[in-house]
Structure formats: structure tokens, C-alpha cells
């Protein structure tokens, strides 16, 4: 009986983000008028695309027990480059340059973290500032735009119901990386590196390589996300990605990735971004301002952190204890009190 209960809770805990997402979805479907329309649901999917894409790489870095604060500005770099190089080179090449630029930022991060052994929080704080400066210098403070809207329209128009190409690309990448990380030997290495770097190294994994690859992937997905978003609007501003960082960090944690490393899933992060997007969409429809939205996401994040901490705290307390013996003692005590 007790055991079943425990197992039940464990299942709920493991899939909590999916429950949370369904809960929010159902609540919004009941309370928000016009929520359950094809149009609105497509909007939500479009709305989540940018942050989901960025969250892919960020989650991989976090699984490796590192942190990447530069995703916000890397996203902007991708957006600025794809628009900036488009007139001269066309969409294909400019997209490639944007993604390569992202990869380069990731490589620099990865090198400084893995080889120079500097804390990733510090490294990426530094690259965050540096990249922002490069963006300003590149655009001279301007926002950039392209006059060609064909790609923008293509990216935004659903090809199958609910799914415009931008969303489709995002979902395909999420599934691809989810399978890569969870199902391949190489992918599982990220978890080992994150859980215990020394053990992973002793087990023959190239830990430095893994960390560098994680950062490169983070740079690539951030830049790609930014680039696709910029393409869908045919323009980019030098501060476009400022607010993505905090949302992605929050979503990744809510999605079940642990800052202690070695735990988490890309699908979880993606669903967490989706949850937050549904929340924002519904609240906006209800006429709630930004203050309610940030309050709500703060509370959700706080609850998740609290729950996780409390569960660990409880587990820590009963570590080494024998609950069945304790129960007996307690029963004895109560018995003696009763008499």
C-alpha cells in the first residue's frame, strides 16, 4: 500500500511537467474565451518556437552541469547576421553565417570552460557582454530589416494544420535531440559528464570534448532560433533576445532539468516553454498585464524549486533510517499515551 503510493508519486513527479502543462491547458480552455480555436493554438505554437529552440542547447549545457548566460545575446547575434547578410548573400548563406557565428560563440565558451577551467557562469557572463558589444558595433545601434517577405510568409503559414514550417522545424529538432540524448550512447554521455565528471572521465569519456560540444550546440540552437525568428519578421533589433534568457532558464528548471547536472530532458524543457506560453497567452486574453504574467511564472518556478528542495530535504532526513522500525516506535509511544 505504502509502496504503491510512493511509486505513484514518483511517476507523477517524473512526468510533472506534462501534468502541469495539461492542467494549465485545461484551465485556460475552460476560462478563456476563444482559446480553443485552431488560430489561437497555432499562435501558441508559433509563440513558443523561439524559446523552445534556444532551450534545446541550453538544456544540454545544463545537463553537463554548466550554465550558458550568453544565449540571449547569441540569439540576437544570429538574428542580426541573418538579416544583415541577406541582401548580399541571400537567405541560405546568411542563415549559414548566422549559425556559424553562434557556433563560434559556443566554441569560445566551451574552450574557456573546458580547457581554461573557468567557471561557466563567469565565462558566459563575459561573452554575453562581449557579444552584445559586437552586435551594437555591427549594426551601429540600428535595427536591421529585409524587404523580402516571401520567406517570412512561408515560415509563418501552416503547411499542415497547426504547424507552420518554423514550428515544424522546432519540433523536429526537439525530437531529434531528445532521441540523440536519451537513446544513443554518445548522447547518454552528456548525462554521465554532468552527473560525475571524474567517473565519466575514468569510464573513458572525453569529458572536455563533451562540454565543448554542449556549448557549441547551445550557441547553434540559440543563433538558429534567433535567425528563424528574425526571418519570420524580416527584421532584427540589437536587443531582441534580452528577455529570452530568464524565460529559458526558468522553463528549463520547471521542465525538470537539475542544476546539479546529469538530469533533465529536452522534451521536458520544450513542454515547459509551451506551458509558460499557454499561460501568457491565456492571461493576455483575459486582460491581465505583464505584472500578473511575471508573477505567475515566478510562483510556478518557486513552487517547483521548493517542491524539489523539500523532497530532497525529506529524503535526506530519512536517509539511513528504517521507517518500519520508526513506525513501531511511534505506535508504541501512542499506545502508551493512550493508556
Amino acid at each position: 500500500m505504502d509502496k504503491m503510493n510512493k511509486k505513484f508519486f514518483q511517476v507523477i513527479n517524473n512526468y510533472r511537467i506534462y501534468f502541469l502543462c495539461s492542467l494549465v491547458f485545461i484551465a485556460m480552455a475552460i476560462f478563456v474565451p476563444n482559446f480553443l480555436t485552431v488560430y489561437n493554438l497555432t499562435n501558441i505554437l508559433k509563440g513558443m518556437s523561439l524559446n523552445v529552440m534556444v532551450a534545446i542547447g541550453f538544456t544540454i549545457v545544463m545537463i553537463c552541469k554548466e550554465l550558458d548566460l550568453s544565449i540571449g545575446t547569441t540569439l540576437t547575434l544570429g538574428a542580426m547576421f541573418v538579416i544583415g547578410f541577406q541582401p548580399a548573400l541571400g537567405w541560405g548563406w546568411s542563415l549559414l553565417i548566422a549559425v556559424l557565428a553562434g557556433a563560434l560563440v559556443g566554441l569560445a565558451n566551451g574552450f574557456l570552460v573546458a580547457r581554461a577551467k573557468i567557471d561557466s557562469f563567469i565565462v558566459t557572463l563575459g561573452t554575453m557582454t562581449t557579444v552584445q558589444g559586437i552586435i551594437f558595433l555591427y549594426g551601429k545601434g540600428y535595427a536591421l530589416n529585409a524587404t523580402d517577405f516571401t520567406v517570412a510568409d512561408w515560415l509563418e503559414t501552416p503547411i499542415i494544420p497547426f504547424l507552420p514550417p518554423r514550428v515544424l522545424i522546432t519540433i523536429v529538432l526537439v525530437l531529434l535531440f531528445q532521441v540523440l540524448l536519451a537513446r544513443t550512447r554518445y548522447g547518454r554521455g552528456f548525462y554521465m559528464v554532468g552527473a560525475n565528471r571524474e567517473t565519466a572521465w575514468l569510464a573513458g569519456l572525453n569529458t572536455e570534448g563533451y562540454v565543448i560540444v554542449a556549448f557549441i550546440l547551445s550557441g547553434i540552437t540559440a543563433a538558429l532560433g534567433g535567425a528563424l525568428f528574425a526571418m519570420s519578421l524580416s527584421s532584427a533589433t540589437p536587443t531582441i533576445g534580452t528577455s529570452s534568457l530568464m524565460i529559458v532558464v526558468a522553463a528549463t528548471i520547471i521542465g525538470g532539468t537539475s542544476m546539479a547536472g546529469g538530469k533533465g530532458s529536452i522534451l521536458g524543457s520544450a513542454v515547459a516553454v509551451l506551458t509558460l506560453t499557454i499561460l501568457y497567452n491565456g492571461l493576455t486574453n483575459l486582460g491581465a498585464g505583464y505584472e500578473i504574467q511575471i508573477l505567475a511564472s515566478g510562483l510556478v518556478l518557486a513552487m517547483v524549486v521548493l517542491y524539489e528542495a523539500y523532497a530532497l530535504y525529506r529524503a535526506d532526513k530519512v536517509k539511513g533510517q528504517r521507517p518500519e522500525l520508526l513506525k513501531e516506535v511511534r505506535m508504541l509511544q501512542e499506545g502508551s499515551k493512550g493508556s
Binding site: 508573477l295 518557486a302 528542495a309 530535504y313
Partner: peptide
């Protein structure tokens, strides 16, 4: 409770921001 300091304080920052606004 040993919550992760960065994430917890980030959540607190969100909540304070929302409450104040």
C-alpha cells in the same frame, strides 16, 4: 531546504517584480 540558490533567488526576483508592479 537546500534549494538551488541561483534558481530560487531568480524565482524570488520574478515574484517581487510582479508584486511590486
Amino acid at each position: 531546504l537546500r534549494a538551488n540558490p541561483i534558481i530560487w533567488t531568480l524565482a524570488v526576483a520574478f515574484v517581487i517584480n510582479g508584486v511590486v508592479r
